[in-house]
Nucleic acid binder design. Structure first.
Lengths: 352, 352
DNA sequence: CTGTTAGCGCCTTCAA
DNA sequence: TTGAAGGCGCTAACAG
């Protein structure tokens, strides 16, 4: 036998089966597909043999022949992030139901790496791509790699962080609506000095959430105070900024943060400065995260439904892949957000 | 031109280039590899042309020809878990440096799905596999799918949750050592009634951590009290069990939990029953998670260094893939764990 | 009913 | 210096 045979079972191919039965390769191929062109007798023998040796068509050969891989690529800015893992879970779930594999790449928020990932995947490796753009790309505002991809005929779905000017399927959370809900809740609980802790301007989702905040203030005729809007790049900038506000004459009685960590840090800063949450100041975060449940008090948040977003993204992608339409119409799915009330706001509805 | 051309750029192949220059495909192939067999003149023309049209060899064809894909598969029990995302980050990082792609599959802790994933990946899709086995597989204690895989010559590296009897490369955290450190720390801080909150027996890492706990007690001659060992399947079982202990005559003054959530819940239960952490009772968790930083007080934990584990796992895998050795020797890498002291234990060394 | 041929895209002898 | 042939594994159209 072949060398190394005791260490490794050779994979069985059509060719080998053909040799075994002294028939042609195509006969075997047909037999295994239970073609009516082949005699029942021969089919049964071949099928039994194949089953016995666990014959499986070689994926690589099929990929080449069919020019598709039944694999979809997912490019994420990072993965150590509860929201993204939820999205992946959603994608994976549906992919599984549909017989697709999932290939995950991380851009690490880098423009360069995003391009590299894209090029790698575009080279026949996947049938379509789902992605959330990196911060650096948002900042550079340069999206040629996406238009190139689309021009090459590779289906692309953007989620969460999307680009308006790119024409493709999109899935976004209702950021404006969620932020509105949160701010509204604070207002209805009696807050009138509501701090917004958000990201720098180039981060689109941060801006959307700011819009919702502003909309709620306006709708409820709460005076807008510019100094209450804190734009921070990193959570360690929150402490000093927030402390100033707390020590000011007109101290905040509500805080809405555009993500979970900002909110958790804000709560800590409040506590360290003698404020009790939610009695003196109420706090709401925006997230799909896990921290919120374990802070003290547990944090009221706007839930994003990441898993749902993932499923929807893949649904749109498969829709496009399967579509033979000459002029396919792109869609943008808006995923509802809603308030998950915990103990950092006064209207306590659940214990823990 | 071809139909649909304005919608999609045709991909350029060796064949097309060959036609363009009226030479053979193999000439083009060689020219692009800068072979000395081809005239400088022709090479330059072909190379310029290829560059202009962004020629990239088709991955699918290369995969088939080389019988390898430069892709490695990762099978995880779940992904909504900080530790696993850290591991992925580590794998992805090194993969990137080495020019490999990463394909991620989730077993969702299911034996069946683990097998499905394995079969899918084994079919030529990846050059090797990194995996952490599902709980269900641990429970069933059935590992034939792994031995089959190995017999088929597909390199496999197990990490974190590994199986002793399977011969392959492994990466494990020093669970015993970490648990020892944690327990030792509690003892040195003066605790003598130390609760262990752990998982059911079939979970290997839980057992390992229990071993470390027992070892520390023994070494420091702290009397072992069986009733202090709480085995829970789910965190919601912690409340009643722990409450009983707290209300008993000999109440706990230390808690070591084998994961982050158990520890966070334990702290909450303590607080709700009038105990102050760390004054009345000190708590340590085991994890690589993110919750610990945001609990009140922040949680002292045993850090697992997931990213390091991921890197190491891939390192071993590539080592095996590249190895031509007739009798390759499997290794087991032990990744150090260490104590990250926060505020749930008395010996406060950092603020926050 | 079975086999031959061609092709997916690339690479690697070997021959001219 | 160039090209032809064969093969990776599979499928499908077309012959016999």
């Amino acid at each position: 036998m072949l060398p190394g045979c005791y260490r490794m079972k050779q994979k069985i191919t059509l060719k080998k089966i053909a040799k075994e039965f002294n028939v042609s390769i195509s006969t075997v191929s047909k037999a295994l597909k239970d073609s009516h062109e082949i005699s029942v007798e021969l089919k049964e023998k071949i099928q039994a043999f194949a089953r016995y040796y666990h014959y499986k068509p070689n994926s690589l050969a099929l990929n080449l022949r069919n020019q598709k891989t039944k694999t979809i690529g997912v490019i994420l800015p990072e993965i150590v992030h509860h929201f993204f893992t939820k999205v992946i879970t959603g994608i994976e779930q549906l992919a599984n139901e549909k017989g697709y594999n999932v290939m995950i790449c991380l851009s690490n928020e880098s423009y360069e790496k995003e391009i590299l990932n894209l090029e790698m995947l575009a080279n026949g490796v996947v049938d379509g791509i789902i992605l959330s753009i990196s911060k650096e790309t948002e900042e550079r505002d340069d999206y040629r790699h996406f238009t190139d991809l689309i021009r090459n005929g590779i289906p692309l779905v953007m989620f969460d962080r999307v680009v308006d000017k790119i024409e493709c399927n999109k899935v976004i959370a209702d950021d404006v609506g969620g932020a509105f809900l949160a701010t509204e809740h604070l207002i209805q609980n009696g807050c009138s000095n509501i701090v917004l802790i958000t990201t720098p301007d180039y981060v689109v989702v941060g801006n959307e959430r700011k819009l919702g905040y502003a909309k709620a203030l306006k709708e409820y005729k709460v005076p807008v105070r510019k100094e209450l809007v804190l734009k921070v790049e990193h959570e360690n900038e929150i402490e000093s900024a927030l402390k100033n506000l707390i020590l000011s004459s007109n101290r905040p009685d509500g805080i809405f943060a555009v993500n979970e960590v900002y909110a958790a840090v804000a709560m800590r800063v409040c506590r360290e400065n003698g404020l009790v949450v939610p009695d003196d100041v109420e706090v709401i975060g925006f997230t799909d995260g896990v921290i919120s449940e374990f802070t003290t008090p547990s944090l009221t948040t706007v839930a994003q439904h990441g898993r749902h977003m993932g499923r929807k993204a893949l649904e749109l992608l498969l829709d496009e892949i399967d579509s033979k339409e000459p002029n396919y119409k792109y869609k943008t799915a808006l995923i509802q957000t809603d308030l998950k009330i915990r103990n950092s706001t006064k209207e306590v509805q659940m214990q823990n």
